[in-house]
């Protein structure tokens, strides 16, 4: 994942869809057909179980984005699309990671973890499983900090996002 690329290469779309089978494939297929790479994608039902919300981060220039948004909007199961702008939205991502933690490095890792605001999920003799929720950039930074200790396994959720409140009042 090219997590260090400048932020403007990525566009975050929040797509509200009908919660039906096959809808995710339609949305993903639309990107695939135009050879646009999906950077991350998270999907779950909204407060109304009839609908799901997809947060999709796409790597592209803004001109074709306009076309993608219009094409997405043509999908019958797509109810609403919003493009979220950095600075006007709240983005979060969850990471779960297992890292090598020998007795001599364990305190150091926990210090990093506390500073980042993460949690210890599980302890083993020579490794730890940690979790961190935060803005994607903070998750990136924490991942970089852990790398020298030896990452055994790592899973990130991809970002979820909502428009920030002041934006919503416009």
């Amino acid at each position: 994942m090219n997590v260090h690329e400048p932020e403007f290469r990525y566009h975050t779309l929040v797509v509200t869809v009908e919660n039906k089978s096959g809808v995710l494939a339609r949305v993903a297929g639309l990107f695939a057909r135009r050879a646009f790479n999906i950077e991350s994608l998270a999907v779950a039902p909204t407060d109304d179980e009839e609908f799901s919300r997809i947060t999709v981060v796409v790597d592209l220039e803004s001109a074709p984005l306009d076309q993608v948004v219009k094409q997405l909007d043509k999908l019958v199961n797509v109810v609403e699309i919003r493009e979220l702008h950095p600075g006007h939205s709240v983005e979060r991502e969850l990471m779960i990671v297992t890292v090598i933690a020998e007795p001599d490095t364990r305190d150091e890792i926990v210090e990093h973890l506390d500073r980042a605001g993460g949690k210890v999920l599980s302890l083993g003799t020579d490794r730890m499983m940690l979790s961190l929720v935060g803005p994607p950039s903070r998750v990136d930074d924490f991942e970089d900090l852990l790398r020298p200790y030896g990452i055994v396994e790592l899973q990130r959720t991809g970002r979820v996002a909502l428009a920030s409140l002041d934006d919503a009042l416009d």
Binding site: G22, G29, L75
Partner: peptide, 14 residues
């Protein structure tokens, strides 16, 4: 069938 015809129909239903 719905997979095959997804990109060539306005919409399809199973």
């Amino acid at each position: 069938t719905t997979g095959i015809t997804q990109s060539i129909t306005k919409h399809n239903f199973l």
